Amino acid sequence: MSNWKTAYRSFYYENAEEPDDLSLPPEETALLVIDIQNTYLEEPDDKTEAARWQPFFERMNGTVIPNTIALTDWARKAGIEVIFARIACQTDNGRDRSLSQKKPGFNYLLLPKDRADSQIVPELAPQADEITVLKTTDSALTGTNLRLTLHNMGIKNVIVAGIFTDQCISSTVRSLADESFNVVVVENCCAAATADLHHRELEIINMIYCHVVQSDDVFATCPPTR
Rank of each mutant, 00 (worst) to 15 (best):
E43Y: 13
N145V: 14
L176Y: 04
M1H: 14
V64S: 07
Q101E: 11
D217F: 01
D129M: 11
L31R: 06
L22Y: 10
K102F: 06
I87L: 12
V184A: 02
R52P: 02
D20T: 10
V33L: 13
R95N: 09
T136E: 10
Q167T: 04
P112R: 07
D92V: 09
V218D: 01
T63P: 00
A195W: 00
T144A: 14
E201F: 03
E130P: 08
T194I: 01
Q127G: 08
I80E: 06
R95S: 14
L124E: 04
D216Y: 04
A30G: 11
F57I: 05
A140P: 00
I36V: 15
Q54C: 00
D21E: 15
A30N: 09
T172N: 08
N157C: 09
H151P: 00
S139F: 11
H151N: 09
T132N: 04
A195L: 01
T136P: 10
I163M: 14
A161W: 03
Q167S: 10
P55L: 08
T172V: 06
A51L: 10
V185W: 00
D114T: 10
K77G: 07
K113Q: 12
A78V: 02
W4C: 08
V133E: 02
S175T: 02
Q37M: 15
I34H: 05
T137V: 12
L176F: 06
R86A: 03
D114I: 08
R174G: 05
L71C: 08
C189A: 11
T194D: 06
K102N: 10
N3S: 14
S2I: 03
A177V: 01
V185N: 01
V158E: 08
D129G: 12
S215L: 09
T221F: 07
R115V: 10
T137W: 15
T29A: 07
R59E: 10
N145S: 15
P122G: 05
A161R: 03
G79H: 02
L141R: 07
Y12K: 15
A70Y: 01
A191G: 01
A30F: 04
A85G: 06
R174D: 06
A177R: 01
A191Q: 02
D138M: 11
V185I: 05
I65W: 10
M207Q: 11
A128K: 13
L41V: 13
I155K: 13
P66C: 12
L109G: 03
